[in-house]
Design a protein around this nucleic acid. Structure first.
Length: 405
DNA sequence: CGTCCACAGGAATGACGGGCGG
DNA sequence: CCGCCCGTCATTCCTGTGGACG
């Protein structure tokens, strides 16, 4: 290829990009962590949270609060919104209270969640090495010494409890005498509506002194939300109402999930920009739906541990040769065979069974337990992805590559 | 109606790499 | 440097089970 041709291609890309600039006005407003100033249809919830947290302004401890609602119902946005408002007031009035936000699924473990809290109040904690109770007592000690007042928001708190039980929450909610005259209030945000039942009675009464439910958005409401976002982020006349309506309809019909809806709009807009179009229409939205799904899958595939990858591949092969009878037993045989080829030692049936359920929860396969009566009880394995998708995602992995041919 | 298949999936335990305080 | 504790991954051992077959 000559330099001239290169230049032509580059020119084309740049001029497309320049045209595309007509589409976006402010990219930020479509990002998933963007907190808009205006939260439509959430006034009742906002007032409730405000009332619950108001005692802070008099220096007293607000009730613990539990917030429920499915994903994308505005729980996080509403909470963050209130917190920024409160922080503004607090600074103005010189009230000393700390707000700490953390997402339990992001931080991952009990330990790291606590470490997050610790570092936010100015306590440096090694990222591993200490006993959890040690971290906790250090936090309590510091809070007592400095009579620190803090509100600790734990997002996706259900994740924490499912994985580790409610002991940490118990310790956190029952530490008030150990840190007085400071205090620690908890705000738990849960996607799981049945979350409360996982808690023991002692934690339940403490944590959910107040409760708040965020209902899903209707398609109508999603449309309004999307329109507001589009006005913030896109140029007027750069998008069709059909595109907006389709985004709302696609995400609304599932769970009233505003985050998904906004994601969809962003991806669609980026798609339109990349192709140099200056009008975002419903065609882009339809492509975006597929792209989001693809990205999610290939991302999950690439970060899989090596044995999980092999198990997944074995599942695909087994289902390919005999879709009707693809069971954990067959997959395990195939898996051992593949392991031999790579020279890896194969894991136990028990472990592979566990990996299969993990792949199921990731949505990469479906592993349904079925009974063949006299012929035993198995997981029926059904891959949710194609061999091509898998091989494309695995081709950067040296150990995996020569398992295809 | 009991048997018995082919596993599921819980519990206990261990190996390992990492990081602490002393 | 030691002894200890962490999270993660894996093994071992185990009990449980729906329903077709005899």
């Amino acid at each position: 290829m000559t330099t001239n041709q290169n230049d032509e291609i580059l020119d084309a890309i740049f001029s497309k990009a320049l045209q595309g600039r007509k589409l976006f006005q402010n990219h930020e407003a479509l990002r998933s962590d963007f907190v808009p100033h205006h939260l439509p249809f959430r006034n009742p919830q906002l007032t409730s949270i405000g009332q619950i947290l108001a005692p802070i302004l008099h220096g007293s401890k607000p009730s613990n609060l539990l917030i429920y609602g499915k994903t994308g119902t505005g729980k996080t946005a509403a909470t963050k919104h209130i917190i920024t408002k409160l922080v503004e007031t607090i600074i103005k009035k010189h009230i000393d209270t700390k707000f700490v936000y953390c997402n339990a699924r992001m931080t991952g473990t009990e330990y790291r969640t606590l470490a997050e809290l610790a570092s936010a109040i100015g306590l440096t904690i090694p990222f591993t090495g200490l006993a959890i109770t040690e971290v906790l007592s250090r936090i309590q000690q510091l809070m007592k010494q400095t009579s620190l007042r803090a509100v600790f928001v734990i997002d996706e708190i259900d994740y924490l409890v499912t994985a580790y039980g409610d002991d940490l929450l118990y310790d956190l909610t029952s530490s008030s005498d150990k840190i007085s005259p400071g205090f620690l209030s908890l705000i738990g945000i849960s996607n799981d509506l049945q979350f409360k039942e996982q808690l023991g009675a002692r934690v339940q009464s403490r944590l959910s002194e107040e409760e708040l439910v965020f209902p899903p958005y209707s398609v109508e409401e999603l449309r309004t939300i999307l329109n507001e976002r589009a006005q913030l982020s896109l140029n007027p006349n750069a998008y069709t109402t059909a595109a907006i309506n389709l985004c709302a309809a696609l995400s609304g019909s599932e769970h009233g999930d505003a985050r998904r809806a906004v994601d969809l709009l962003r991806v669609a807009a980026e798609l339109a920009e990349r192709e140099g179009s200056n009008l975002l229409d419903d065609r882009h939205v339809r492509i975006a739906v597929q792209k989001i799904d693809q990205d999610r899958v290939s991302d999950a595939l690439r970060t899989l541990p090596i044995h999980a990858k092999i198990v997944l591949l074995a599942s695909i092969y087994s289902a390919h040769t005999d879709p009707a009878r693809a069971s954990s037993g067959l997959v395990y045989d195939k898996y051992c065979e593949l392991c031999k080829k790579t020279g890896l030692e194969s894991l136990t049936t028990r472990r592979v069974s566990g990996l299969l359920t993990e792949l199921d929860t990731l949505g990469l396969i479906t592993a349904a337990v079925v009974n063949y009566g006299r012929y035993g009880r198995t997981k029926k394995i059904n891959p949710e992805i194609t061999l091509e998708t898998a091989s494309k995602a695995f081709e950067s992995d040296d150990a995996m590559r020569h398992l295809f041919h």
